[in-house]
């Protein structure tokens, strides 16, 4: 169990984490979601006592991280795949971590086996691929057989096989009753792994909800219709008492009606349709709607609401380069 209470972190004028309060519970995978630069990594570093909060507290099973006896036996964390000395072999990297927490040497072999690095245990990690480095970092997190595991963007840069492996690992760890806390900036990734969702933007808590609840509330389905007889189609829909939202490309979006019914309606009025397609707003779009307010500097081309923009295209790239300012500064 990890409890954050009013956690705040300022870097000079920039408020990276803004009064965060939430609890990470055992037995489930909790996804920690936010755009790049939302303060996820800073929050995780504060959980591990690496960064000092400006105010507020983090408690791990009721205690400050620094008060833990042999912390690796309580919390295992993967913060950054490159947080290791490249000149040291995988085995020695894990051995020095194990020794510092009184973990037996045999456990190093075990975790190397778990992550599939036994064959390169004696190799220096400098030559490792990103995926191998990530596995070594995960081996370090598992070393103390901890009840709490934290992973910061664990699937970044991994191949599909590696991603699949990490997803299953996290689910298994949670199924064993452990607390699993994993950050990501990809909603689609979270949808596949997380049971619970904590969303932040600009360091502020935007949502703290179950994944199922988030999907139920946010997966909007609608039917997209396009016709050369644009005006007539509108009139017919009006006449039938069906609400629609016109889009700038001339298409109409209709919620709460199925495609068959709409197609038959158009046919009855002899309207030619160029498109009649059921659509499901993705969770990614829901996530973007949620964080849109917290992202101060948008890409300038999205004059439409984010729901209509192409998911994942320009989002999250442009604004990050803009300087962020503390609210009210």
């Amino acid at each position: 169990m990890i409890e954050l209470a009013d956690l705040t972190k300022d870097y000079g004028d920039v408020r990276a984490v803004d009064h965060l309060t939430f609890t990470v519970r055992p037995g489930i995978v909790t996804g920690f979601l936010g755009p790049n630069g939302a303060g996820k990594s800073t929050t995780m570093r504060m959980m591990l006592g690496l960064d000092h909060p400006t105010s507020g507290t983090v408690r791990i099973d009721g205690r400050h991280y620094r008060r833990l006896q042999d912390p690796l036996k309580t919390v295992g964390a993967l913060l950054d795949a490159k947080a290791m000395h490249g000149g040291r072999s995988a085995f020695n990297h894990l051995l020095c971590l194990a020794q510092s927490n009184g973990i037996p040497r045999a456990r190093v072999r075990e975790v190397l086996d778990t992550v599939g690095l036994t064959s390169v245990a004696g190799k220096r990690s400098k030559g490792f691929s990103l995926g191998m480095g990530q596995r070594l970092g995960i081996a370090g997190a598992l070393l103390g057989d901890p009840q709490i595991l934290m992973f910061d963007e664990p699937v970044n840069g991994l191949d599909p096989e590696g991603i699949h492996w990490i997803r299953n690992l996290m689910k298994n760890l949670a199924a064993q009753g452990r607390t699993v806390f994993v950050s990501s900036h990809l909603m689609s990734e979270m949808a596949l792994t997380a049971d619970h969702l904590v969303v932040i933007g600009q360091g502020r808590l935007l949502a703290d909800t179950s994944m199922a609840g988030f999907i139920r509330e946010n997966s909007r389905s609608f039917v997209r219709m396009r016709s050369p007889g644009h005006e007539r189609l509108r009139d017919v829909l009006h006449g039938a008492g069906i609400d629609f939202v016109p889009r700038s490309d001339g298409a109409l979006e209709v919620e709460g009606e199925d495609a068959e019914h709409l197609g038959e309606l158009a046919a009855r009025h002899r309207i030619v349709l160029h498109e009649l397609s059921p659509q499901q707003a993705s969770l990614e779009e829901a996530f973007m709607r949620l964080t849109a307010g917290a992202v101060e500097y948008h890409a300038h081309d999205d004059h439409q609401p984010p729901a209509a923009a192409a998911p994942g295209a320009a989002w999250g790239t442009d604004w990050r380069k803009s300087p962020r300012k503390k609210k009210g500064a």
Binding site: R45, L48, G49, L50, Y65, R66, L68, P71, L72, V75, A77, L79, D80, K82, A83, M84, H85, G86, L97, S100, N101, G140
Partner: peptide
């Protein structure tokens, strides 16, 4: 300084927070 230049410092201080 190798601890810092390699990023190992975060792993080290997570293992030994004192």
């Amino acid at each position: 300084s190798n601890e810092y230049s390699t990023g190992m410092i975060r792993t080290s201080l997570a293992a030994v927070p004192q």
